[in-house]
Amino acid sequence: MHFPPNLLAPTRKVVAAAFQQAISSKPTGIALRRYITWLENRMPTNSPAGGDALVPNDPFPWATLLERSWKSIRSELDQLSHNFDALPRFDDISPEQQRISENANWRTYFLYGYGAPVARAYDRCPQTGALLDQIPGLITAFFSVLGPGSRVTPHHGPYKGALRYHLGLQIPADRERCGLRVGDHTLHWEEGQGFFFDDTYEHEVWNETDEWRVVLFLDVARPLRFPYSVMNEALIGLISRSAQVATARSNHEAWEESFERLFDASAGPRKP
């Protein structure tokens, strides 16, 4: 049965409030983990994205717009390319990433983080920012920059309520030596093409070439039927207020101050 959105709105608010109170009132991580497991177990059968490692593009019509606009995104990336080595390593921003990126020159340029655009990045990349603003359920967006000879070791994400999207922007000529394994699937990026996957499946990344590899890296909320969609939104909201996210935001803000000066110096005087 289909209900008009205006009739569902009060119900969504009630469900969201009740679920938020439940997950926030439990004093232990064990109880919260039980909520998450209960919800995750219901996701594959209540989502058009299904439950496989590789996710179809069909539930995400905005992905077509990104792919059509990839050259505009690439042109804004290009203004950063001479400063790739000055970008922060992922573990500089998010220290818990160190265990998987210790031997990788994995650098990031954040555009959007847990519900909030990065103002300076939007100023520097306005076309990319305008495209990101059209994505419902966007959680995180950044240019993921993997240096030559790098490998991100096998790992898996913590929560099925988010899905990952990669859009190829700057891909080494020898594509076969630069790839991603998700579960039993091996993928190779192509400029202007994107794909989705569930990062709770074990995955790893490698770049065995002597060139940089750059993708637009997005995490988006998994599409779900009501009421699971509201519960998922509440959990993502809870994560956005966690200590780990607060640390990442603080680290990024500190880095942005220094990069702003470097970028302005390398770009030369601005036009009036």
Rank of each mutant, 00 (worst) to 15 (best):
P5W: 12
V14T: 10
A17K: 12
A17G: 15
A18H: 03
I23H: 09
I30M: 11
R34S: 11
W38P: 03
E40R: 03
N41W: 11
R42W: 03
T45C: 04
T45Y: 09
P48E: 08
L54Y: 03
N57Q: 14
P59H: 05
F60K: 00
A63Y: 05
A63S: 15
R68Q: 15
W70H: 15
K71H: 14
I73R: 05
L77S: 14
D85I: 08
D85Y: 01
D91V: 00
D91Y: 02
I93Y: 05
P95H: 08
E96S: 14
Q98S: 12
Q98C: 02
Q98I: 04
S101Y: 00
Y112I: 13
G115R: 10
P117V: 09
P117S: 02
A119N: 08
Y122D: 06
C125V: 02
C125A: 15
Q127E: 14
T128I: 10
L131W: 00
L131C: 05
L132N: 06
F142K: 10
G149H: 07
S150G: 06
G157D: 04
R164M: 09
Q170L: 06
P172E: 03
G179R: 12
L180E: 04
L180Y: 08
V182A: 07
G183Q: 04
E191M: 05
G194A: 06
D199E: 13
Y201M: 10
W206E: 05
N207F: 02
W212P: 08
W212A: 11
V214Q: 10
V215I: 15
L216A: 11
V220L: 09
V220R: 01
A221S: 14
R222I: 11
L224R: 06
L224C: 07
R225K: 13
R225H: 09
F226I: 07
E233M: 04
A234I: 05
L235T: 07
S242T: 02
N251K: 01
E257Y: 01
F259D: 00
A267L: 07
G268M: 10
P269W: 06
P272A: 10
